[in-house]
């Protein structure tokens, strides 16, 4: 029996191993999401009893969508999702525009102090948000705002307090700078020779060929904003502006003990809520994943 494999056989074996490993990883990564979605269909006691076996991933037993109805009764989920979408999309939209323009100026224009400014921006990355949360709170609680009610002071309980402090982001600027530097500078020189101004070069030359970095920045910033918890806990006191992650707290409490079957966390409702608030994140990733993967794959490759 000939044990030496032909090239074709080797290739087939390699492929099988590769796909086997990838499938295994896919299953491992999918486990938490499957657990969450399956559990959202089960009563809390069944979730707890199934959690120590593979039954946790199987939609069997007392299956229903009751948890979703109960979750909507427990918390104004529609409002929370709306608020988070508003805050995330506006911050993301304005952030992509402003951070990319800043990065364009830092990467492609020549001006005095350029490197110092870039260094300072990058240096701010080492500051955790928690260290500036209190000073920022003191500032925003006194800032003026011109709205429909005229000039008012203090931004607490508003959308702007959740948006404006997070539009400018050092990491996004850094990402854009790295990407813009990798683009051939001849493109900009050619546009300059053709008489284009800096904004026109940015908008019509650079942006159209920078899809991957925009997608990456959008996903990273979008996730960060969607997952905001500490800051809204500090500055939002009204249900009206509360985002989804603070809303999670509505489900993090023991249910009343005098009703049969209660006295434990409402795990089923919690999983239903998590499933609902995970959907926008999955949609965002699916919409941008090709560009995101491309960006990751080409990181560090000079043009």
């Amino acid at each position: 029996m000939n044990l030496i494999l032909s090239i074709k056989q080797k290739r087939a074996l390699f492929l099988a191993l590769r796909y086997g490993l990838m499938s295994l990883l896919a299953v491992i990564f999918a486990f938490p999401i499957v657990f969450m979605m399956v559990s959202s269909l089960k009563p809390s006691l069944q979730i707890l009893r199934d959690s120590s076996s593979l039954m946790a991933f199987v939609p069997m037993g007392d299956i229903s969508i009751d948890n979703y109805f109960k979750a909507f009764e427990r918390a104004p989920i529609g409002l929370f999702v709306y608020n988070s979408l508003m805050v995330t999309l506006v911050t993301m939209g304005l952030g992509l525009f402003i951070n990319s323009m800043a990065a364009f100026a830092l990467a492609n224009m020549r001006w005095k102090g350029q490197q110092v400014v870039l260094s300072v921006i990058i240096a701010t990355l080492i500051l955790p948000f928690e260290t500036i949360a209190i000073p920022l709170l003191m500032v925003v609680s006194r800032l003026p705002w011109l709205g429909p009610e005229g000039l008012t002071y203090g931004w607490l309980n508003s959308y702007q307090v959740q948006i404006i402090p997070f539009i400018v982001d050092a990491f996004s600027i850094f990402l854009f700078v790295q990407f813009f530097k990798s683009l051939p500078y001849e493109l900009i020189e050619a546009a300059r020779i053709d008489g284009a101004g800096w904004f026109r070069i940015y908008a019509q030359v650079i942006v159209p060929i920078s899809g991957p970095v925009f997608a990456t920045a959008a996903i990273l910033r979008g996730l960060f904003m969607w997952n905001q918890y500490l800051w809204p806990s500090m500055v939002i006191q009204s249900t009206q502006y509360r985002p989804v992650m603070v809303g999670l707290g509505y489900f993090w409490q023991l249910t009343s003990s005098n009703t049969a079957g209660e006295g434990i966390l409402p795990w089923g409702e919690l999983m239903a809520y998590l499933t609902i608030i995970t959907i926008p994140v999955i949609v965002l990733f699916l919409a941008l994943q090709r560009a995101f993967v491309e960006s990751i794959a080409t990181t560090g490759i000079k043009g």
């Binding site: 979408l85 508003m86 999309l89 506006v90 993301m92 939209g93 304005l94 992509l96 525009f97 429909p148 959308y159 942006v207 159209p208 060929i209 920078s210 899809g211 991957p212 925009f214 997608a215 959008a218 919409a287 941008l288 090709r290 560009a291």
Partner: peptide, 24 residues
């Protein structure tokens, strides 16, 4: 593909602005 991504992002940004406008 790049222009498609840009279109999606532009759409998101416009949607965000609209939300803000409607978000009284």
């Amino acid at each position: 593909m790049k222009s498609k991504v840009w279109n999606i992002l532009a759409g998101l940004a416009i949607f965000a602005m609209l939300l803000t406008a409607c978000g009284a």
